[in-house]
Structure formats: C-alpha cells, structure tokens
C-alpha cells in the first residue's frame, strides 16, 4: 500500500516536473527567440545579445531591467522613460499603429529626445547603437510576429513662399491643430489641459515658440513626418489620410514661422505681417451629413 502511494506520488511529481520544465522551455525559447533578434541599419547589423550588456550599462537606470520604463530613476523624471514592452513609439517614419523601422530607433538613440531626460548617445559607437536597437526590440514579442511598417513617402521639399505659408496657416486652422497647440502655437489650446498619454499621464502639446528643436528631429522633413505619421502613444494623431503632400509642406513652412530662431519662413511672415489665426471662430460651415 505504502509503496503504491509512493509510486503514485513519484509519477505525479514526474508529470508535474515535466509540465513545468516544458513550460519553462517554452518561455525560455520565446526569450531565446527574442534575444536572436537583429537590427539592420545601413550596412550594419545589430544583435540583441550583443546589445544586452550595453543596455545594462547605459539604459537600465531609466528604462529598467524589463524594458518597461520602470527603472530606478523613472520615478524622478518626467516625461517618463519609454516602455519598450508595448513597442509603441512616438518617432516613426511608418504609419500609425505599425512598428517603426530599425533606422527610426537608431536615429532616436543618436538624437536623444528634446525636453526629456533622454540624451543623445553619440558617445557610443554606431555599432553599439545598432546593437542597442536590437536589444530594445527584444522586449516586445511584436517584433517576432510583425514587420516594421512601410515608411510614408516624403516628396522633395519645395521652396517656402508667401502663398505656401498662408495655405499652411489656413490648414492650421482647418485641421484644428490649435485645439491643442493654441492659436499662436504656444501649446495652450482649449483641449491642452485635459490631454493624457496612452498610460493616462498628463501630457503637454508642443509649444512652437519654446524651442527650435522637435522631439523627433529638427529638419523640415522630420516635422513633415511628425504630423503625417502621428506620435503613437501620445494624443498627436496621424494626418496622412487627409493631408496631401503639398499641403503638408505648407504646414511645415507655417509652423516654422512660429519658432524662435530666424528662418526664411519667419522673414516672409514678417513681410506679410502674418497675424495669428482666430481660433475661437467657428470652422467654416460644413454641413453635417
């Protein structure tokens, strides 16, 4: 009798251990798979396994050992470090809802994020940064199942003209950018104080008068990309479905007139005597269907 129950117990234990081992194997293999992820930027290839020690040296303090943005410094800083486990990124060249390209992530690491605690990581070698991209990707299983989105097309930049700036201003009113960014672009529109990010933390719309830099790059084409793709995870939506490439450039030129640094656009605006839009006025009567 006793031996019998002992046998039963042994069988049970064996089954349990096998199951646990199998489960462990499965999670282990998923982790393994993710650690085998690569990143490709130009001719460079990054490996998540190689990126791991670099991450542990430089990134873990804010982004945390799990890549969830809960590092030990996270509580002291705002904006909060990005949570890599959801693979939701602001700075992308790809449509809203899709994964960014490796190049997008590589550029973000090299550029840093203005108005946040994320510095640029140019002191690291290019290869270190590509390896980091691969390791950052490894935190989300999305990279195993999905491909990066197809970058939106950015046509050649035209010359800024007075007409273009005026059209840009009309668009700023018509697309209701001012609802959040304010009539003067100071980030104080009527909806500004209720904005939250996707984790329900308060977030401020960009004040164009505050800085000559943007979160996702300083160049005109980067600004173009910001409102066309949207900044996923933030309240900033994508406009690519409803704004033509030409109009998008017009908007870029208008936004340049709001910024503090001297620019060709600003000169033109001065000559035009461009006044801020009357935001509170109703949008043109457009019959509801």
């Amino acid at each position: 009798m006793r031996t019998r129950s002992a046998t039963r117990l042994t069988i049970f234990a064996v089954i349990l251990l096998t199951a646990l081992y199998g489960w462990g194997q499965e999670t282990q293999s998923s982790e393994d798979q993710r650690l085998n992820l690569e990143a490709h930027v130009g001719k460079m290839t990054g490996q998540a396994r190689v990126g791991q020690p670099i991450y542990k040296r430089f990134c873990i303090g804010c982004h945390g050992p799990l890549g969830d943005g809960q590092g030990e410094n996270a509580q002291w800083i705002d904006p909060k470090p990005r949570n890599f486990t959801t693979a939701t990124f602001r700075c992308r060249s790809t449509p809203t809802g899709t994964l960014p390209t490796d190049q997008d992530l590589y550029d973000t690491i090299g550029r840093g994020l203005v108005n946040s605690n994320m510095p640029h990581w140019l002191p690291l070698t290019n290869h270190d940064r590509v390896n980091l991209v691969a390791y950052v990707k490894h935190f989300s299983p999305r990279w195993l199942k999905e491909k990066s989105g197809t970058p939106i097309e950015i046509p050649k930049e035209p010359e800024p003209t007075a007409d273009r700036i005026k059209v840009g201003q009309t668009l700023y009113q018509k697309l209701e950018c001012w609802k959040c960014h304010g009539v003067e672009g100071r980030g104080n529109g009527p909806s500004a104080d209720t904005l939250t990010d996707d984790e329900n933390r308060p977030i401020r719309p960009f004040n164009f008068h505050d800085s000559e830099k943007f979160k996702c790059g300083t160049a005109d084409w980067q600004m173009y990309k910001d409102f066309m793709t949207g900044l996923d995870g933030s309240p900033m939506p994508s406009f690519v479905d409803n704004v033509k490439p030409d109009e998008a450039w017009d908007l870029v030129f208008y936004l340049r007139t709001l910024q503090p640094m001297n620019s060709k656009e600003k000169q033109i605006a001065k000559q035009l005597g461009l006044k801020p839009i009357a935001g509170a006025a109703q949008p043109p009567a457009n019959n509801p269907q």
Partner: peptide, 10 residues
C-alpha cells in the same frame, strides 16, 4: 495595436 488618426470634417 493602438493607432491614432485625425478625421477632419468631410
């Protein structure tokens, strides 16, 4: 996956 699109009138 989350997405966020603007939809102006019309």
């Amino acid at each position: 996956n989350q997405w966020n699109k603007s939809q102006p009138p019309g």
